[in-house]
Simulated scan of single mutants.
Amino acid sequence: MSEDAITEKIRKLLRLAKSSNQAESSAALAKAMELAARHQVDVHSLSEDDEIAKLVTRYFRCGGKRLAREWRKALAVARQFFNVTTCTIQDFGQVAFIGTEMDIQIADYVTTFLVRTCRDELAKFSAEEKKRRRRMSANKRACFIDSYFNGVWVQLSDQREAQVHEITGLEIVLSTAEKAREAHLDAQFKNTTTAKALTKPRPTLHTLFAGYDAGLNTQINPALGTDTPLALDYK
């Protein structure tokens, strides 16, 4: 398949990813990311219309009315590193993402990926604990999840810091975009309340190390560039 044909196929998948059918949208986005990563295509460069820069709000379901710990942590990562602002609507079991169409699609993809990967790594850790005849308590589970996302956070923070040093004015651009999203949020959701902070688990040393290492080594699909995980930069 020629380079032009690959690019056009990714474009079509990205247009399909805007579908109101969430299953169809997610499948199209995942396929677009897979093709972009395989052929080293910058997805942002494929945006053809001015609509891509406009702030919009999209709603996603994240489990039940009460968000699981791993979802709340993953959403914090999305807010910090993937150019979106999020708002939890607990009465409906939904999360609102505010950002550009492209950034929202990417943030949704990353959030789901991190939750799934965290759960997979937690299942492996639980199996190891059982093999060693150690009890897997609720506190251990919370400790592993927190440590996992700490590892992810450190990995992405290092990459963001490198980009800020490399790209002049990036920090100002990111800050300005964040303020615009916050204003958009305030205009749409006037009566929202800040979610309560997660209760900090009592740490157990081997759980902390296991979760942290798993998060630090998680490779988020680099679909928007050859060596940059997804949408860390702001184009």
Score class of each variant (00 low, 15 high):
T7G: 05
E8M: 02
K9Q: 13
R15S: 09
A17I: 09
K18V: 01
S19F: 03
N21R: 00
K31V: 03
A32Q: 05
L35S: 13
A36C: 07
L46T: 04
E48Y: 04
L55G: 00
V56S: 08
Y59K: 10
C62P: 01
C62E: 07
R66S: 01
R69K: 13
V77G: 03
R79N: 14
N83P: 01
T85L: 11
T86C: 03
C87L: 09
Q90A: 01
A96S: 06
E101P: 00
E101M: 02
Q105T: 04
I106F: 06
A107P: 02
R119K: 15
E121V: 00
L122K: 13
A123I: 08
S126P: 12
E129T: 05
R132N: 15
R133K: 14
S137C: 04
I145G: 08
D146W: 01
V152S: 12
V154R: 07
Q155L: 03
D158G: 06
R160E: 13
A162C: 04
G169H: 02
L170A: 03
L170Y: 12
S175R: 01
S175W: 05
T176Y: 05
A177S: 15
A183Q: 11
A183H: 06
L185W: 05
L185E: 13
Q188P: 01
K190S: 11
N191G: 07
N191R: 04
T194W: 08
A197P: 02
A197L: 14
T199L: 10
K200L: 03
H206M: 09
Y212K: 13
D213A: 10
A214C: 03
A214F: 04
L216H: 15
Q219H: 14
P222Q: 13
A223P: 05
D227H: 06
D233G: 13
